[in-house]
């Protein structure tokens, strides 16, 4: 049938037929057409350096920071969280699963959890003071902002006074949840409004669609 033709023509790159795409739609906030539009985006990102249908770290870096090099703490974390199978590349299903968390209609609980794992740099199950300091320093460096160490410590003290309810110097999952629910603006970067209009951002999916919704 049509799908066999696609497979032969594009080898491994078009492994995602209608069945896989609708499966991804079922397990996410996305419709089949939106998953198809995401597939257009995925194809673009996954062929920017090595055209193999997988997103490598350098490709994610290139998309996010317009340069395939330059070290970035957050890129490492984002890549790590997107790469569910931990095999060093982002596959399309992983891409959809991760972006699903950033959907405007995704449960807040999922966003809270994703942000926690993002900030738990060493994956100890806690956001530690040192990690927070490391992240703030990274941000100050990239934005050429200068802050004295005293001021930096004061900001972190104040943050921990608010977030670290049991005062043990680290923020656990429950404390994080309480903290974020009191400061919902901290989750703003966990929502990408674009995902609601992904089919208009990537209208070219129409040429490849297998369903009309």
């Amino acid at each position: 049938g049509c799908c066999d033709f696609h497979k032969n023509k594009h080898h491994k790159k078009l492994r995602y037929g209608f069945r896989e795409l609708s499966q991804l739609a079922r397990e996410s906030q996305f419709t089949v057409n939106e998953v198809e539009a995401l597939y257009e985006l995925f194809k673009k990102l996954s062929s920017s350096i090595i055209d193999d249908g997988l997103i490598h770290k350098e490709e994610l870096q290139l998309a996010l920071f317009k340069s395939p090099h330059s070290e970035n703490l957050f890129l490492d974390r984002v890549f790590y969280l997107f790469d569910e199978k931990k095999n060093g590349v982002i596959e399309f299903d992983e891409f959809v699963h991760a972006l699903n968390v950033f959907h405007p209609y995704a449960p807040t609980e999922d966003k809270i959890d994703f942000a926690f794992r993002l900030y738990d740099l060493r994956q100890t199950g806690f956001i530690e003071r040192e990690e927070v300091k490391q992240m703030v320093i990274a941000i100050l460096l990239e934005s050429d902002m200068n802050l004295s160490d005293d001021l930096l410590e004061a900001i972190i003290d104040k943050t921990f006074a608010d977030a670290d309810a049991d005062n043990d110097g680290k923020i656990n999952k429950e404390e994080w949840k309480d903290f974020v629910l009191r400061h919902p603006n901290l989750l703003k970067n966990m929502t990408l409004p674009y995902l609601k209009d992904i089919t208009t951002v990537f209208p070219s999916f129409v040429f490849n669609t297998e369903v009309e919704e």
């Binding site: 920071f65 990274a138 400061h183």
Partner: peptide, 25 residues
């Protein structure tokens, strides 16, 4: 004044933390 800001506010506002660039905006 910056002391009134919480550390996670700084982090979450950072450009690095914005995945919007994925869409090639």
């Amino acid at each position: 004044k910056p002391v009134s800001m919480n550390a996670f506010e700084l982090i979450s506002r950072s450009q690095s933390f914005n995945l919007e660039n994925l869409f090639g905006k």
